[in-house]
Design a protein around this nucleic acid. Structure first.
Length: 455
RNA sequence: GUGGUUGUAGCUCAGUUGGUUAGAGCAUCGGAUUGUGGUUCCGAGGGUCGUGGGUUCAAACCCCAUCAUCCACCCCA
């Protein structure tokens, strides 16, 4: 039989023990901050019903959902017309009713509605789990990656947005990396679209504005016209495109521009509240109002937050915002939530690129017992048990291989101590303890091994 | 979905204008050293040259297709 080449699906990864130490450092840091602010953990299944997921992430998002084939003879129920017509999109609906989760926010909204009677609001939860997207993998983009979500649901207060920014700031301070926090508000974007009468084109507008630095004002305008905006509308948004200055200057100018839009003014007010909190309780990271920040996810209605590394280019490492009606879709209207998601894998890439992981020992074995034969092994077993009871990570080599090989094993695993007990030691009641780093060897009375190794 | 890059040993890569049996380093295993690792020395195993066609007396090398890969765009964490 031909052997098959071992491989894993595109965009997925294995993690070695060394990588797991670094990954856990990130997860532990993030989780510790979440807990510090009083958020509680939950988990949800890897699979959700497709009805839960579809339509929440825009057209693009639906395409990027991993769908799970129904069990059993799924073609039996398939629609003949769709099958013959090779209509993948419609056929999918009849042969697949489950999908892998695309993010943690939508499953969270589903969770909140489903468990509403057990939850006391405002509900602050965190969730650290993998998500899957059928994207084309590239730098910093994976098909399976971890998100670390914090959300608070059931409270309208802008204080929650502020607290999320504090959390972001704390996390990246602890991780020792500089970030830029970009803020915007969907209501402002709606206001802009409203005053130029182009509500439909809001995404095209923000995408074009976003390119200002790269391609210049003329090309931005050309792109707007190309996207079907009338000349008058393009004229009208010139001041918005060219908006510059400090955050408060931008807000003042926007206030005038959007004075006829109630929604727009509400968005400005929300941002002013947020900046108000930030002026009282300063945070370390730079915060910038960025009108071109749109975020594709359909469900955002208020604040939009995105975080980028200042020292590494890898796209955003954090993103989130406020959603007023996600739970409404599941039959529980009028509950507003706001949350943010840390992209653990990208944060890993940033820290790795900048080489700023703290040097920490692999949390591994402290002492290895050399196996010199079955009698010696049996003699060692109770000693090993005692060391373990004292909290010392202890291994005993499973076979009586050549000592050279056993020593090499200890060396490669960077085990700091090796204990040798052979016939001589069994008779004398003293073990030979070798310090692998210094190469020193000491005879230690077997009863005193635990205290010797605990030092 | 669009454009480009690269596919040779487990990993990183050499491989001349197409020319005999495709190489190196690292890693692995064994020996030098039967109770002592890291250094050193010696040796061994490991290849459908991504896959399938074509051109040629002859293809890792040229041509076509295909798959995979990485990167950019789109979008996103």
């Amino acid at each position: 039989m031909a052997t098959q080449k071992p491989s894993i699906p595109k965009g997925t990864r294995d993690f070695s023990p060394e990588e797991m130490v670094k990954r856990n450092y990130i997860f532990d840091t993030i989780k510790s901050v979440f807990k510090r602010y009083g958020y509680q953990p939950i988990e949800t299944p890897a699979m959700e019903n497709l009805s839960t997921l579809m339509g929440k992430y825009g057209e693009e998002g639906d395409k990027l959902l991993f769908k799970v084939l129904n069990s059993g003879d799924f073609l039996e129920k398939a629609d003949d017309a769709h099958l013959k017509g090779k209509d993948s999109l419609k056929l999918t609906n009849t042969i697949s009713e489950k999908g892998l989760r695309y993010d943690l926010t939508v499953p969270f909204a589903r969770y909140v509605v489903q468990h509403r009677n057990e939850i006391s609001f405002p509900f602050k939860r965190y969730q650290v789990q993998p998500v899957w997207r059928a994207d084309k993998p590239q730098k910093g983009r994976y098909r399976e990656f971890y998100q670390c979500d914090v959300d608070v649901i059931g409270s309208d207060s802008i204080f929650n947005e502020f607290e999320l920014l504090q959390i972001v700031d704390d996390v990246f301070n602890k991780l020792n990396t500089n970030v830029l926090i970009k803020l915007n508000n969907r209501k402002i974007l709606s206001g802009i679209a409203e005053i130029i009468g182009q509500a439909e084109k809001i995404v095209d507008i923000t995408v074009a504005i976003d390119k200002l630095d790269k391609i210049g004002i003329e090309k931005v305008n050309a792109e707007l016209l190309e996207k079907g905006l009338p000349k008058e509308a393009v004229q009208k948004i010139q001041p918005i495109i060219l908006l510059a200055g400090t955050n408060s200057e931008k807000l003042e100018k926007l206030k005038k521009l959007l004075q006829n839009s109630e929604t727009g003014l509400k968005g400005i007010n929300e941002l002013e509240q947020l900046f108000g909190y930030l002026s009282v309780a300063k945070i370390h990271s730079e915060v910038e109002l960025d009108l071109s920040l749109a975020r594709g996810l359909n469900y955002y209605t208020g604040a939009i937050i995105e975080v980028k590394s200042k020292d590494a280019s890898i796209g955003s490492i954090c993103g989130g915002g406020r959603y007023d009606d996600l739970t409404g879709i599941f039959g529980m209207p009028g509950v507003s939530g706001v949350g943010i998601s840390f992209g653990a894998d990208r944060i890993y890439d940033v820290l790795d690129q900048l080489n700023i992981f703290p040097k920490q020992e692999l949390d591994t074995t402290k002492v290895l017992f050399i196996n010199l034969g079955s009698d010696e092994q049996q003699f060692c077993l109770p000693i090993v048990s005692i060391l373990r009871k004292f909290g010392i990570n202890t291994e005993i080599y499973p076979e009586s291989d050549k000592m050279k090989k056993q020593m090499a094993y200890a060396d490669k695993r960077s085990i700091p101590f090796v204990v040798i007990i052979g016939t001589n030691e069994m008779n004398s009641g003293k073990a030979m303890v070798k310090n692998m780093k210094s190469g020193d060897q000491n005879e230690v009375i077997i009863n005193e091994l635990s205290s010797f190794l605990s030092q």
